[in-house]
Every structure is written in structure tokens, then in C-alpha cells.
Amino acid sequence: MLQKKISEYIIETLIKLSGLIVIGFVFLIFIFLLKDSLSLFGVYNISSFLFGTHWEPVSEPPKFGVIPLLVGSVYVTLIAILICVPIGVGTAMFIAEVAPPSIKHVLKASVEILASIPSVVLGFIGITWLGPFLKTTFYLPTGMCGLTGSLLLSFMALPTIISISEDAIVGVPKNYKEAAYGLGATRWQALWRIILPAASSGIIAAIMLGVGRVIGETMVVLMVTGNSPVIPASILQPLRTLTATVAGEMGETVSGSDHYFALFAVGLVLFIITFLVNFSAESFLRRARK
């Protein structure tokens, strides 16, 4: 009896500890980013960082304006989400409510395979096939543009959106659907008017997590979006995202230089964005569970 109690106590403490360690890590990462970013603001004006429209890190004097990068990231993310939300939620509805069991299994498995495609591979497809294809289709000067990145990113966000929305739809209590059928609703009416609204918090959370996935993705955008640090007028132009900037430039900076700290500041901006997105996703999920 005593032995059982002791072992229970130990296990409990261990679990508690691992939870605290994770929180500690997040906090330490934040402190780490903040510390190195603040070193930049000692030598470089914070408002010219936040509102500057030129990113020219190796010029003399360097310009660290984050706006073109921010706009690039937002642009790519927005279009990617516009593309993948209808497809993702539609697929989730189909898997959860419409598909016969055999198709359901195949679909679920293929969604999982989609999630396991490495992003570099998608980047290759973007460079060699999707980019040239978009170029000839839209008569663009180059296929290395925001849309190429958005399309590939929407591909990457699909598995997240599909599986979480599906969970949300399956989680809607059975009697809702039965009541709808009892009142003479067709299958489509029940799905569209009853089940979808009831699952909406979960679906919004799925979308937010998709956004978090897209905005933090690096390899694909670095490979296919052309990386010009201009404020893009349209999605069909080359652009440069926050993540691609950090990945593309980190290797060549000497640790302790202004450029190095500027990249940390970009990382901090990115961290704050993903934090907010994930936080709101979490609050939607919590509401969904109630």
C-alpha cells in the first residue's frame, strides 16, 4: 500500500515536472529572443524597424525595415488559407458525415500521408513544375511568386485543418442530427445548418492552427517565392517572408553584429504572431469543448 502511494507520488511529480519544463522552455525562448532583439534597438531605432519599408541588411548604412517581410508573410498566409479552408472543411465534412467506411479509411490514410511530405520536396515541385506552370498560365514574368508559395503552403496546412475539423464535426452530439432528421431535414440541411454551426468553434480553431502552420513554414517559401524584399502589390509578384529572411540570412551573420540582432528581432515578431494565432486557436478550442 505504502509502496503504491510512493510510486504514485513519484509519477505524479514527474508528470507535473515535465509540464512545467515545457512552459519553462517557451518562456526561456521568449526571453532569449527578447534579449537579443533589444540589443538591436539599442543601436537601431525601433520605429524604423517596425515601420521601415526597406530591408537592406548588407548596405551601408543597413536598413532593417520589417514591413515588406511582414506584408509578404501576411499575403502568402492569407491566400493559402483562402485556398485551403474550403477544401479542408469540405473534406472533413465528407469524411465525417458522408463517406462510406471504406472510402473514409482511404481518405484518412492519404491525409496522413499528405502531412508526412517533407517541405523540401514540395519546394522542388514548386521550382520545377508549379512555378513554370503558373508562369505560362497567368502570363507572368516569373513563376517565383507569392501564389506558388501560397498553393504549396495550403497543401501543407490541409492535413491540420482536415483532421481537427473532422474531430470537431464527429464531436457534435448525435441527438442534434437525429432531431434535425426528425423535423424532416435532408442530409445536406442537417449538415449545413445544424452540424456545421455546432462544430464552428472547433473548425475555427482548426483554421487558426492551419494559419500558425503556414506562417511559420520556411523551406517552401524560401525556395519558391523569389525573396525580393519589396512590398508586393499583388500575390502574383515575388515577395519575401519573415521566415525566409531569417533562414536565408542567418548563416552569414557574425554573432553579435547588428544584422544578427535584426534577425532575432524578426524572429521575435514571428514568435509574437504565432503565439497570438495559437492562443486564439486554443481559446476557440476551449469554447468548443464546453
Binding site: H54, T142, M144, L222, G226, N227, P229, V230, P238, G248
Partner: peptide, 8 residues
């Protein structure tokens, strides 16, 4: 020119 594409 800022329109220049920067490839990796």
C-alpha cells in the same frame, strides 16, 4: 533593383 529575385 528591389524587384530582383533573390534565389538561394
Amino acid at each position: 533593383s528591389p524587384q530582383t529575385l533573390l534565389l538561394t
